Amino acid sequence: MARPQHVPVLLDRVVALLAPALGRDGAVLVDCTLGLGGHTEAVLERVPTARVIGVDRDPAALELAGARLAPYGDRFTGVHAVYDELADVLEDQGLASVDAVLFDLGVSSMQLDVRERGFAYAEDAPLDMRMDGTTGPTAADVLNTYSAAELTRVLRDYGEEKFARKIAGAVVRERETQPFTTSGRLVELLYAEIPAPARRTGGHPAKRTFQALRMEVNDELAVLRRAMPAAIGAIGVGGRVVVESYHSLEDRLVKQAFTAVTRSEVPLDLPFVPEGSEPALRLVTRGAEKADATETAQNPRAASVRLRAVERVRPPSPGAPS
């Protein structure tokens, strides 16, 4: 198996956003998408007061990250979980709250760079795409069992694929002859179904379909929808939630969650904000931050990143959103 490489996106900026929340001795960061541990390693190296709980649904990633981070001893703890299980993770660790939570969403180098995982379309491999390869349906299961209407929805909503209906119809037709098992056959179908003019723009013609299948297999949007309020509720005063998104639907969910907890409920025409009515959190980033041209040239995966952060400035009011 090839050893994956990992170039964390916006690494310096992410650490700079997290550091103010991690200044006290024993401060805790939960890295909800540990991957190969690039962000966690940078925090442990640059913020000596912090310790990190690294969460990942991928046992292989946890093993590799654990070996990489072993020099930091008990400042790092790895946990096998999906990040919407954050509340359970904190309870198991005996923590009522933490100082920071980090999400680096989407597919990681751990998955993309290892051929056997089936995430990449550049070479023929089993159609798996599970972030936790020990459980759940594979991409092949989706292709071979979903109806044409269900496949169209997945490709359109998660891949923003203009030819979703055409591709779905072809998949259903072709699987009657032989079920889909490897990525090579799916890529061939996509080349056949996507018109030549469309193939010449927007990157590889398989990019959108593979993204859509990955998001469906791992239930990524539903997991994120549950994880955002859990993360916001987990931080104490001065704590921060930092999120890197790579898909417009992900970024929209994050933006909505952050807006809901940073917006004042006081009428606009009121001349002052009554004490206790202020939002419990504030936006740290101004809109969504992006990678600059230099980083994008060095690391193409940075091209679509959207970075947002919030900070808790006071405890939640009784009955108010976290």
Rank of each mutant, 00 (worst) to 15 (best):
A60S: 15
E244V: 13
E174A: 10
N218S: 06
V242A: 01
P179F: 01
L69Q: 03
D219N: 12
F103S: 07
Q298A: 15
K255P: 07
R263K: 15
N218T: 06
G159W: 04
G38Q: 13
I167A: 01
R286L: 14
L22V: 04
G23C: 13
T201N: 02
E63L: 15
S109R: 00
Y83P: 01
T177Q: 12
R301I: 11
L224T: 00
P20Q: 09
A196M: 14
D219Y: 08
V9F: 08
H80N: 11
T201W: 01
V14P: 01
R165K: 15
A168K: 08
V310S: 06
V98R: 01
G236W: 00
T259D: 15
Q211V: 07
R173H: 07
S108W: 03
A293T: 12
E63C: 12
A260R: 01
G287Q: 02
T177E: 15
G73F: 05
Y83C: 05
E275W: 08
Q211E: 15
V79M: 03
A81E: 05
E85Y: 00
A234V: 02
I232N: 02
D292K: 14
L17K: 09
V9Y: 03
P4H: 00
R115L: 13
S245W: 13
D157E: 14
R117I: 01
L127D: 11
G35R: 02
P197W: 03
T40C: 13
P315N: 14
E91A: 15
V241Y: 00
E63F: 09
L127K: 00
R115N: 12
L221G: 08
A65Y: 09
P316F: 14
R68E: 14
G94C: 06
S317T: 14
D124M: 04
L270A: 15
V217P: 02
E161K: 10
L105W: 01
E220S: 03
E193L: 05
G136L: 09
A212Q: 02
K255M: 06
N144A: 11
E193Q: 11
R301V: 05
E289V: 10
R263N: 09
V187D: 05
P300Q: 09
E176D: 11
P71Q: 05
N299D: 13
A198S: 06
L29Y: 03
A192C: 10
R301N: 03
F76K: 00
D84K: 07
E265F: 14
R263D: 12
L224N: 00
V254S: 04
